[in-house]
């Protein structure tokens, strides 16, 4: 089992493991709609596309990817709502 370590405390978690593209990004966008500016959400995704989809969308939308932690079974992508 992968142990993922980071210093970032997320305000919300979106567990999109097992969800196929574009599910993880859409789940993340849905959660960000509900958050306040400055809140941090972590997306758990085992889809490879998320590693490119999420940073591209964050850049387009003005939100900020704080950290991407890659694991063997899934990745964690930390996004701050701007």
């Amino acid at each position: 089992m992968t142990v993922i370590e980071t210093d970032i405390d997320a305000d919300a978690t979106v567990d999109a493991r097992g969800s196929s593209c574009p599910g993880p990004l859409m789940d993340l966008i849905g959660k960000i709609r509900d958050l306040e500016t400055g809140d941090v959400v972590v997306l758990l995704s085992d889809g490879e596309e998320s590693l490119t989809d999420v940073p591209e969308w964050a850049e387009e939308s003005g939100n900020r990817v704080l950290e991407i932690v890659e694991g063997d079974e899934h990745n964690e992508i930390y996004v701050e709502k701007s």
């Binding site: 574009p22 990004l25 859409m26 596309e49 591209e56």
Partner: peptide, 10 residues
């Protein structure tokens, strides 16, 4: 379309 291409399936 909501993601960076015109359909979710590449």
């Amino acid at each position: 379309y909501p993601v960076g291409r015109v359909h979710g399936t590449p």
